Simulated assay, not measured.
Amino acid sequence: MKQLALRIAGFGFRREATVGSLGQALDQLVEHYGAIDKLAAAHSMLSLVEELGRLRGIEVIAVVDAELATVTTLTHSEQSLQARGTGSVAEAVALLAAGPGATLLGPRIISVDRQATAALAEGNR
């Protein structure tokens, strides 16, 4: 029996971001790709994503910050590379949370206020 793939939304955001910034980015993902099973964030950025998860009734997965630099992403943001060692925090988080063999459904999206990014990965976790 084939296991259904889980769709996990990963987030990256600036200190100034609000839960509204993240919610708007999540809404864009849902509009573009459809249903999302779980949310994910780097451990150091977890609280705001947990708040969004509570508001939306979606489970949140924490990813170890040190693992971000081990992931190859579609996006190559210089700011993200310098700050976190990865081209896109949102893409790296989504891939790590979705597990080995996960794939991104596309590059990250950026919230309208440009404070948050979100990316969607499919995996079997």
Rank of each mutant, 00 (worst) to 15 (best):
H43D: 15
L52D: 15
A90E: 14
L81W: 08
P100R: 01
A69F: 09
G57H: 05
S77L: 10
A92E: 09
Q79V: 13
D113V: 12
G99C: 03
G57D: 10
E67K: 07
L68V: 06
L48D: 15
L68M: 02
S88M: 07
E50D: 09
Q79T: 15
G53K: 01
S44A: 14
G99Q: 01
V71I: 15
L46W: 02
S111I: 14
S88H: 02
L105Y: 03
E67V: 06
I61G: 00
S80I: 01
L74E: 10
D65N: 09
V49E: 03
L52H: 12
V89G: 13
E67A: 15
A98P: 03
P107V: 05
G57F: 04
T86C: 14
H76I: 00
L55Y: 07
T117N: 06
R114M: 02
A66H: 06
A98S: 11
R84L: 11
E78A: 15
L81G: 04
L96E: 10
R84M: 13
S44D: 12
T86N: 09
L74P: 04
A98L: 09
A66F: 04
L105N: 12
I109L: 14
A98E: 01
T70H: 09
L46P: 02
D65W: 06
T73Q: 08
A90Q: 11
P100H: 09
E59H: 11
L74D: 09
E51C: 02
I109T: 14
L55I: 08
E51M: 10
E59A: 15
A92I: 08
T70K: 12
I58M: 15
E59V: 03
V71W: 08
V89N: 12
A90V: 11
T86S: 05
V89Y: 10
D113W: 03
T75W: 07
S111T: 13
S77P: 09
V63A: 01
H43W: 11
V71D: 10
G106H: 01
G99W: 01
V64K: 04
G53L: 01
A62C: 05
T86D: 10
D65I: 10
E91Q: 08
L81V: 06
L55E: 15
T70W: 09
T73H: 12
Q82K: 11
H43S: 14
S88R: 01
I58T: 12
G87D: 12
S88W: 02
T73K: 08
G85C: 05
A62W: 04
T86L: 06
I58V: 14
T86P: 09
T75D: 04
G106S: 01
A66R: 05
G101R: 00
L48K: 14
